[in-house]
């Protein structure tokens, strides 16, 4: 191998080895929990790939699903209403965001110092469905429904897993016992899930006229949740392209400079 190729080859090799090593660490869990689990559904997403972006219409539909369906049980504590505004958000205007926030009430103290409620402001965090963790758990046998802010980052399989869960409710196979108040889900580890099927055809009516099928709803809400987990993704990928182009140019020039410097030495 030519010596100047050794360094890149070496690095890339080491990184691939490490990435390969790191992946089983996560997969081990899934494999251990579920031998022979079905492969997660593979659907395409607007945000895939190095130049992927979020489909703003899908984001707004997904937010509608979250607001009308998911938010009755699941909080999203890390988001604020003004995250929804502007080109980095869902494309809503500030006035629209203000109106969205104002539909919710948040606790405050009034002039007399007594607890009171006021309409939420854009700078407020998403108002959770329950006042605290304990209250959230009380209705669900002690285990609160998970917060959805980071759900895509926080699950093996990421968007594919969450999409799988939302579309994976089935009749249990013959002989498979599902306790009452629990449901059978193809992709959930162990198949027995506490969440009732949240989505079905026409669970919402989309304001943009899109047909609200189960798949469409799941796809939209997962797009929204992916944005919520990673709101800086577009900025990250765009910055990355510029940085890598710059670095490649710099690598080329420095390679030339290095050869120049070494040109009068046998080595």
């Amino acid at each position: 191998m030519r010596p100047h190729l050794a360094m890149p080859a070496l690095l890339i090799g080491a990184v691939i080895a490490v990435a390969a090593l790191a992946q089983p660490a996560q997969l081990a869990r899934a494999q251990a929990a579920e031998e022979g689990a079905p492969a997660l559904p593979d659907v395409s997403w607007s945000f895939e790939g190095p130049f992927g972006t979020f489909d703003r219409a899908a984001l707004q539909r997904g937010f509608q699903i979250y607001s009308q369906v998911c938010s009755t049980c699941h909080s999203m504590n890390l988001l604020t209403y003004d995250d929804l505004a502007g080109p980095d958000g869902l494309g809503y205007t500030e006035a629209e965001v203000k109106a969205i926030a104002a539909q919710k009430q948040v606790p405050t103290i009034n002039k007399e110092g007594q607890p009171a409620m006021r309409p939420a402001l854009p700078s407020d965090h998403f108002v959770p469905p329950f006042p605290n963790e304990k209250a959230a758990g009380a209705g669900f046998g002690g285990t609160a429904p998970p917060d959805l802010s980071d759900i895509i980052k926080a699950r093996d399989g990421h968007e594919r897993y969450v999409y799988g869960i939302l579309t994976g409710f089935r009749e249990p196979p013959k002989g498979f016992h599902v306790p009452s108040g629990r449901y059978y889900n193809l992709y959930f580890p162990g198949h027995v899930i506490a969440m009732p099927p949240p989505l079905q055809d026409n669970v919402v009516t989309y304001s943009d006229g899109t047909k609200a099928t189960l798949d469409q709803e799941a796809h939209d809400v997962v797009t929204f949740l992916t944005w919520a987990s990673d709101p800086t993704m577009e900025q990250r990928k765009q910055t990355g392209a510029k940085v890598i182009l710059f670095l490649l140019a710099m690598t080329g020039v420095l390679y030339g400079a290095k050869r120049r410097v070494w040109s009068d030495v046998e080595h």
């Binding site: 360094m7 890149p8 690095l11 890339i12 990184v15 990355g240 940085v243 890598i244 670095l247 490649l248 710099m250 690598t251 420095l254 390679y255 400079a257 290095k258 410097v261 070494w262």
Partner: peptide, 16 residues
């Protein structure tokens, strides 16, 4: 210069 060239290659992988 050899180190800077190596650094540059390394940074490409790191940036990815």
């Amino acid at each position: 210069y050899k180190d800077m060239f190596g650094l540059s290659v390394f940074l490409v992988v790191f940036a990815i």
